[in-house]
Write a protein that binds this DNA or RNA. Structure first.
Lengths: 319, 319
DNA sequence: CGCGTTACGTAACGCGCGTTACCTAGCGCT
DNA sequence: AGCGCTAGGTAACGCGCGTTACGTAACGCG
């Protein structure tokens, strides 16, 4: 049905071993003519080595599995993974996605079974995941943290600084009440609180809401007074709070200042449009992809350099 | 590093062949004692058959690849795939995701390499994709169309009927101007137009917009007059049009009626909240997952029955 | 000529598994 | 005893590939 290396060998008039060597870069020992004949035959037959056979012989496949965190996927992120898929394909690697919400043992099964060349995560691994990878001897690739701390901390810092710069002294952090965001949300909250502390401000209030009007209103009522500046987990939370403020007739940004995160298109359609933070996901992804490829092909040089996360404040009308 | 079937065999004091047979349901010929010893040994060693070895021996792996269409992913859909991942895992299948934006030849490479047990698509395959699957002899699973037409047609119909029921005679369809939606968008538009025709109404106006205010306003200006009822590709488009209407001081729903699709949480935060269509993605996914498993395990009974897509109108304030 | 090199390939093993043909012991029956 | 049968299990092949030890010429050189 599909051409095997045996077919290629026959067509090129050589042995299977020769085909294998030539097509895998170890062909220096063969004459130019033979190399050419093999290359040609492979091309003509559209030969594509079997992942299974190769994995069996070599111990690991050419598959790279990207763990998709339980944070909101879609939109830019999707574009990003798409371009990464193409980029990897160009290097003979197959990028597949795995939703990582499932248990760690499930991940373990995946690894022992598929023997991927590497596992990739743009948001870093949990300790559990790291342990499993280590145990199975599988390469874990995570976008190295830009100097100066993780992206998560950077985001929290930028949000806090912006609110403080705009004159707010009483700050709050608004979580998305979704257990899947637990991990990142908590980190963001802590980093945010740290900035408040460093600036000599009182500890921030902490809100938590679902994306519904009643819930958002309820959250606002938890604030001790008007005049707070709220850093939101993302633009969706920000939109919800904005709607809630309108509902209870709080003026934005006077009674409530809001800064989001993500620069969602929908966030610019509110009135006033959201103040938010943009970062170029495409750049991040391309960087991560390129970096991953480099690491995979030059296992020695683990160049831990990655372009720093560029966070840009989009000044809207909510701060 | 990892236990092989040989290890299990040694530990159970039997041959490797016995292990293979017993663990694959062909163990009726073995004594109960032997079966038990093998099962126990496998459990103790946490034996997990190598995907590669199995794929090689059997011709296809236990991997199921889900093609993720270029439509918006995330949110409910993500939950859905997550639960499907778990459900598949329970049946010894590994569900991986593949962004299908990339070329068909890329899909071809994927198939010939990995030899997945099946390829799954919730939205149906393109003709190209179907051809590739056929050629490679790989099972393509698509959620069978509920009786009475595809989900796409159902959506268009429900939107049109609702607008007509609310007294609108001049209808429009609003596309999302994103080439990735091209395929589904066009189908929806055509189905929508068909309903108009059947009802003796003039052909619908066709709008197309990006999710930005200027673009949405521009789209509205393309309408020949006020008083149109617009069926939107999704809630995001609807939100954009709603914002545009407010921008140019059109009253909703009098000057412009809007019905969305998806029942996005954010769509309920607008003022007025969106009239939209909800469908239980979880149910759809679970149904699809169950169906897929059934088909895979009973290759003969291709029960083409799937629960019909339940579309429910969420009456908001925009119609 | 005789010997050592190099250039060019090939044969063969093993990766982990599924499958099938085959073997052996035990038992019942004539 | 001889035959047939079944239950219970094993040996061995092949899936497609990467890798390495091993030819086998041709060639250079004294």
């Amino acid at each position: 049905m599909v051409a095997t290396s045996e077919d290629v060998a026959r067509r090129a008039g050589v042995s299977r071993g020769a085909v294998s060597q030539i097509l895998n870069g170890r062909g220096a020992r063969f004459s130019a003519g033979t190399r050419e004949r093999v290359q040609l035959a492979a091309a003509e037959l559209d030969y594509r080595p079997s992942v299974a056979g190769r994995a069996l012989a070599r111990g690991s496949s050419d598959i790279v599995i990207a763990l998709i965190p339980d944070t909101t996927f879609g939109g830019n992120l999707q574009d990003l993974f798409e371009s990464m898929t193409d980029e990897f394909a160009g290097h003979g690697l197959t990028l597949l996605l795995r939703l990582s919400g499932t248990s760690t043992t499930s991940l373990d099964h995946l690894l022992t079974g598929i023997k991927p060349r590497a596992v990739l995560s743009l948001t870093g691994f949990s300790d559990e995941e790291r342990a499993v990878l280590e145990e199975r001897g599988i390469r874990g690739l995570e976008s190295p943290a830009p100097t100066g701390g993780s992206p998560i901390h950077d985001i929290a810092k930028v949000q806090a600084r912006h609110l403080i710069d705009r004159g707010h002294r009483r700050l709050a952090f608004a979580h998305l009440r979704d257990e899947r965001q637990e991990f990142y949300g908590r980190a963001r909250e802590e980093a945010f609180a740290a900035v408040c502390l460093a600036e000599g401000l009182p500890a921030p209030e902490v809100l938590s809401l679902d994306l519904g009007l009643p819930d958002a209103v309820e959250a606002l009522r938890m604030l001790p007074a008007r005049g707070f500046g709220v850093a939101c987990y993302n633009d969706e939370v920000a939109i919800a709070l904005l709607a809630a403020a309108r509902e209870i007739d709080w003026a934005v940004p006077d009674d409530l200042a809001i800064i989001g995160m993500d620069h969602l298109l929908l966030g610019q359609l509110t009135s006033p449009p959201l103040t938010t933070i943009e970062y170029d996901q495409t750049t991040v992804a391309e960087g991560a992809g390129r970096w991953a490829l480099a690491v995979l092909e030059q296992p020695s040089e683990v160049s831990a350099e990655a372009p720093p996360l560029q966070l840009r404040i989009i000044q809207g009308g909510t701060t």
